[in-house]
């Protein structure tokens, strides 16, 4: 498993896998399978994949720890950028095919419709994360500050869930499922950071007598 994840082919393979949803959409478009309302279909497909990629990105750290697969970190940036990529497609579908680049209409919508306000905020939050995703920016910001900034992904995912919850007519089961997953991931991190802090304190106590001697 470790060898597989570390192989030089693993990144290109994951990259292609991440493109698959888009290729499927393209295939469906060519075969007239986007239903009678293709614009709605594309909006929903790209929205779904944005949220899924956000969730998958958030899964990387817990899975590294729980499954003892530290090399999963190699894919985290790519997964996060794919979340942003699908968010861009989703937003483009909206502004292009729904609003036909009528910016005043768009701003009215963003101000008036709660679910759009929230979705738009979720999208904006992803922009600084995409921009600072390079090694250069990690250096410039310093690891700690970079990490703090990138906690924004939680807000983005949570707002994405609220966006979804507010836009469905009655079938809340899917947005609630995503909500439960995001909440579980957040709780895991809280728990992990608390126990790490406790561990540090225990270590400190254990170390002190040695130093005192």
């Amino acid at each position: 498993m470790h060898a597989l994840l570390n192989s030089k082919w693993s990144k290109p393979a994951v990259f292609l896998l991440c493109l698959l949803p888009l290729m499927v959409l393209g295939w469906e478009a060519l075969h007239g399978e986007l239903t009678a309302n293709p614009i709605e279909f594309i909006t929903h497909a790209t929205g779904d994949w944005t949220l899924r990629f956000l969730v998958v990105t958030l899964c990387v750290t817990p899975f590294r720890k729980i499954l003892h697969l530290p090399e999963l970190i190699r894919f985290r940036r790519m997964l996060g950028l794919f979340a942003f990529f699908y968010a861009c497609l989703h937003f483009t579908t909206y502004i292009w095919l729904d609003k036909f680049f009528d910016l005043s209409e768009m701003w009215k919508d963003i101000a008036k419709r709660k679910y759009i306000t929230v979705g738009f905020t979720a999208f904006l939050l992803l922009i600084p994360l995409a921009v600072t995703s390079t090694a250069g920016w990690i250096r410039r910001l310093g690891g700690k500050r970079w990490q703090q900034l990138h906690r924004l992904i939680y807000f983005s995912a949570a707002l994405g869930v609220i966006h979804y919850y507010w836009l469905v007519k009655s079938a809340v089961i899917r947005p609630l499922t995503y909500g439960a997953i995001v909440a579980a991931l957040l709780l895991w991190r809280l728990f992990a950071s608390l126990s790490k802090r406790r561990q540090l304190r225990v270590d400190a106590v254990a170390v002190r007598p040695v130093l005192n001697r």
Partner: peptide, 18 residues
């Protein structure tokens, strides 16, 4: 839809006649 130029669509251009 075809004209929309979604990335990735080109890869399947041959299939469109289908």
């Amino acid at each position: 839809l075809r004209a929309m130029g979604l990335a990735g669509v080109a890869a399947f251009a041959g299939a469109s006649a289908w």
